[in-house]
C-alpha cells in the first residue's frame, strides 16, 4: 500500500463517496466506522439544476443513478457550509466539478485557506481525454492536497501514470457510468452503484497500484468484507456510496 503524503493522512481509512452524504458532515447520520474524512457532494462553480430526465433504475446487482449532479454552486455552498466545515470534527475533502482548468483554478483559490478543508477531490468527466484530465489536475494544484477521481473502469489508462510526477496526492477509483433502456425506448446514462461492481473495483485497485499513488476504492463496496478486501489489496482508503443509505449487506 502507498501511504498518503503529508497533509492527506487519515485517522481511519473509511470515508464516504462524493454524492452520498450531502455537503456538510453530520455526525447524526449513520456511518459504520470512525470516519477518516468527509467528501462533499460534487460542487461546480455555477449552480447546476437537476437533469431533466433524472432517474434511479434498479437492475440485478445495482442501480443506475442519473441526477445531473445538481448543486447550488461554489459560492452558495461556501455561504451555507463554510462555517460548518470549519467546525467539523472530521477533515473535509471538497469534491470539485469543472469544465475547464481556468474555472477549476478559480474554485481552488476560493477554497485555499478555508478552515476545515483538508483536500480537494477533482472529478474527471467520464468523457475527458487524458490530456484534458491532466490539465485539470494541474490546475487544481496549490496549497491543498489534490486527489483525482476517475470512474474505476479507466484505471488502466496510461495518462494516470503521470499523475504522481505532476504532484497529485491520490487517486479515487469511483463509480463507473452505464446506460439502461427505459420503457419509451430511450437510453438513460448515469452512475452505476451496487455490489455487482465489486469484482471490477477490486481488479481496478490491483491494476492502479502501478501508478505509485495512494488509491481510494470508491464504488461497489456493499459488504464489510469486500471493503476490507480492497484495503488488503492495496487501497489506502475506501469510500462508501449507496451502501450508506441502506446499511451493510450480509456476506
Amino acid at each position: 500500500m502507498i501511504l498518503p503524503p503529508p497533509g492527506l493522512e487519515l485517522a481511519s481509512p473509511w470515508m464516504n463517496a462524493a454524492g452520498s452524504m450531502g455537503f456538510v458532515p453530520d455526525s447524526r447520520l449513520p456511518f459504520p466506522h470512525p470516519m477518516g474524512a468527509f467528501v462533499t457532494n460534487p460542487i461546480s462553480r455555477k449552480p447546476r439544476t437537476p437533469a431533466e430526465n433524472r432517474t434511479c433504475i434498479p437492475y440485478p446487482g445495482g442501480c443506475l443513478l442519473h441526477t445531473g449532479l445538481p448543486n447550488p454552486g461554489l459560492r452558495a455552498v461556501l455561504r451555507q457550509a463554510g462555517v460548518r466545515w470549519a467546525r467539523a470534527d472530521v477533515p473535509v475533502w471538497v469534491h470539485l466539478l469543472a469544465d475547464s482548468p481556468a474555472e477549476l483554478a478559480e474554485m481552488v483559490r476560493a477554497l485555499e485557506g478555508l478552515e476545515g478543508v483538508a483536500a480537494l477531490e477533482v472529478g474527471i468527466a467520464p468523457t475527458a481525454n487524458g490530456e484534458d484530465a491532466l490539465a485539470l489536475a494541474s490546475a487544481a494544484l496549490g496549497e491543498l492536497p489534490v486527489v483525482v477521481q476517475i470512474p474505476f473502469d479507466r484505471a488502466d489508462e496510461p495518462w494516470l501514470d503521470r499523475l504522481a510526477a505532476l504532484g497529485v496526492s491520490g487517486l479515487t477509483l469511483g463509480a463507473p457510468r452505464g446506460s439502461l433502456p427505459v420503457p419509451d425506448g430511450r437510453l438513460v446514462s448515469g452512475r452505476l452503484l451496487g455490489p455487482g461492481l465489486f469484482p471490477q473495483v477490486l481488479a481496478a485497485v490491483r491494476s492502479a497500484r502501478r501508478i505509485n499513488l495512494p488509491l481510494i476504492a470508491g464504488a461497489g463496496l456493499f459488504q464489510q468484507a469486500h471493503a476490507e478486501a480492497v484495503l488488503a489489496a492495496g487501497a489506502a482508503a475506501v469510500q462508501l456510496d449507496a451502501v450508506l443509505w441502506r446499511g451493510w449487506m450480509e456476506g
Binding site: G19, S20, C63, L65, H66, T67, G68, P70, L244, W245
Partner: peptide, 15 residues
C-alpha cells in the same frame, strides 16, 4: 418519486 438516499445524500434524483 424515487428517494434512494432518504435525505442522507441530497443526491438530487428526487428534485
Amino acid at each position: 418519486l424515487p428517494m434512494p438516499c432518504g435525505g442522507m445524500g441530497e443526491c438530487g434524483v428526487c428534485s
